[in-house]
């Protein structure tokens, strides 16, 4: 278990490109600056896509962990 506290959770398991990105963006838009989103995905492409999305939008992937094919991203809103 991660020690990072998240205020919002988003389940993107089973969804494929580009849905995890689109849903993450939509969720982040409704959050306050500094809040952390916990996003779960099974799309292996989401690893590089989340990094690229964060690079362009200025939001920060604070941590990424993977267990049993499930990727968990902690994203801090800028």
């Amino acid at each position: 278990m991660s020690a990072i506290a998240s205020s919002v959770e988003l389940d993107c398991k089973g969804l494929n490109c580009p849905l995890p990105i689109l849903k993450t963006k939509k969720t982040i838009d409704g959050m306050q600056s500094g809040e952390v989103l916990k996003m779960m995905a099974t799309d292996p492409g989401s690893v590089s896509d989340m990094a690229s999305w964060a690079n362009r939008t200025g939001n920060e992937v604070v941590e990424h962990e993977e267990a049993a094919g499930i990727h968990i991203f902690y994203i801090k809103k800028k």
Partner: peptide, 12 residues
């Protein structure tokens, strides 16, 4: 549609 929606999600 994939590229346009993703672009918008990337603030483009």
């Amino acid at each position: 549609f994939i590229l346009a929606s993703t672009a918008a999600a990337m603030d483009m």
